Amino acid sequence: MFYPNSPQTSPQLTQIPYGQQYAMMQRQIQQPYHPFATTEPQARLYPYHYQGPIQQEQGGFITQQSTAASPQYVQMRVTPVDQSIMSGYPNQTANGSSSSSFNYNIHPQQQQQQQQQQQQLRHHAMPVGSVPLQDDRYRKQLIVNYLAPDVTSTDLHELFSRFGELDGARIIYDKQTNMSKGYGFVYFCHAEDAKEAVERMSGYEFHGKWLKVGYSTNPLNIVPSNSSPYVHAGSRGAAG
């Protein structure tokens, strides 16, 4: 039997160049792979992502010199942007860049009308829970959420009447099932009393439920100042 490094198959040491006398086997001759043993700084910083320098080929596509990437890492192929796409944008300079302001050559009167329309939209648009300043009635009506099913309009009136005089209180019921929808409205005579009720009743436990109280901004629920107070009856038909 002959071994790869046996004296019968191995040459004389004098015939082997210096430095390879003890590297006779194939696994010894093959050098191990060192990912950080390279002179390129990109490979030292990113050993798993770097795959060699990027070269520009004919046709405008950018390719990489090395083989496919590892399945664990996804390499994105980048193509140059066609400058003709950006030619339609206004205020574009000769080098292809555009300024931040756009001039669509709008007539001054049209621009003024658009600004007025935007101001009107901001004036009428009102986020949930906010209180408008032009109508004091919005500051007097509250919406009470997360009410228990057994709470009546009379219970709601008695709960909030300790903060001040009320114009009314009612629970909203479903017309088909005649069941409470879980929320109601309270109408105060003074805005200061309503503000105190919002601050003190939010998070209050009532009939096993934690109440959420806020201003009601729905104009359909506003009680006119010259109208008669609501009837605080315990029956659902009268309260709904």
Rank of each mutant, 00 (worst) to 15 (best):
P4A: 06
S6P: 02
S6D: 04
P7K: 11
P7V: 09
S10L: 08
S10T: 02
Q12M: 15
L13R: 06
T14N: 01
I16R: 02
P17L: 14
M24G: 09
Q26S: 05
I29S: 03
I29V: 05
Q30K: 12
Q30N: 13
H34T: 08
A37F: 07
T39R: 08
E40W: 14
P41I: 14
P41V: 14
R44C: 09
R44A: 01
L45K: 00
Y46C: 09
Y46G: 07
Y50R: 05
P53A: 13
I54P: 00
I54F: 07
I54H: 03
I54C: 06
Q55A: 07
E57Q: 09
Q58A: 13
Q58V: 08
G59P: 15
G59Y: 14
I62R: 03
I62M: 15
Q65P: 12
S66M: 01
T67L: 08
A68N: 13
A68I: 12
A68V: 04
S70A: 10
P71H: 00
M76D: 05
P80L: 12
P80A: 06
V81K: 03
V81E: 01
D82R: 07
Q83F: 12
S87A: 03
G88K: 14
N91S: 08
N91L: 07
Q92W: 09
T93Y: 13
T93P: 07
A94D: 11
A94Q: 02
A94P: 10
S98L: 02
S98P: 02
S99A: 14
S100E: 06
S100K: 11
S100V: 10
S101A: 10
F102Y: 09
Y104D: 00
I106A: 14
P108I: 06
Q110R: 04
Q111R: 08
Q111A: 12
Q111E: 00
Q113C: 10
Q115C: 11
Q115L: 10
Q116V: 13
Q116L: 03
Q116D: 01
Q117D: 09
Q118T: 13
Q118P: 11
Q119W: 12
Q120A: 02
Q120K: 07
L121G: 05
L121F: 09
R122Q: 09
R122P: 07
R122Y: 14
A125E: 13
P127V: 11
V128G: 13
V131M: 08
V131T: 10
P132A: 08
D135W: 15
D136K: 02
R137L: 07
R139D: 04
R139I: 01
K140F: 01
K140L: 09
Q141V: 09
I143L: 04
N145P: 03
N145S: 05
N145Y: 12
Y146R: 03
L147E: 07
A148I: 06
D150Q: 13
S153L: 01
S153T: 11
D155N: 13
L156F: 09
H157Q: 15
L159G: 04
L159Y: 12
F160T: 14
F160Y: 03
R162F: 12
F163H: 14
L166G: 08
L166D: 12
D167Y: 07
D167K: 02
A169R: 02
S180K: 05
K181W: 02
Y183P: 07
Y183D: 13
G184N: 12
F185D: 09
F185V: 02
Y187V: 00
F188A: 03
H190T: 01
E192T: 09
E192I: 05
K195Y: 08
K195V: 06
E196H: 09
E199W: 12
E199M: 00
R200D: 11
S202R: 03
S202W: 06
E205N: 13
F206Q: 07
H207W: 01
H207V: 03
H207C: 10
V213A: 04
G214R: 12
S216P: 00
T217L: 02
L220Q: 03
N221Q: 11
V223P: 04
P224I: 01
N226C: 02
S227G: 07
P229K: 13
Y230M: 09
S235L: 02
R236Q: 03
G237W: 00
A238G: 12
A239C: 05
A239D: 12
A239G: 14
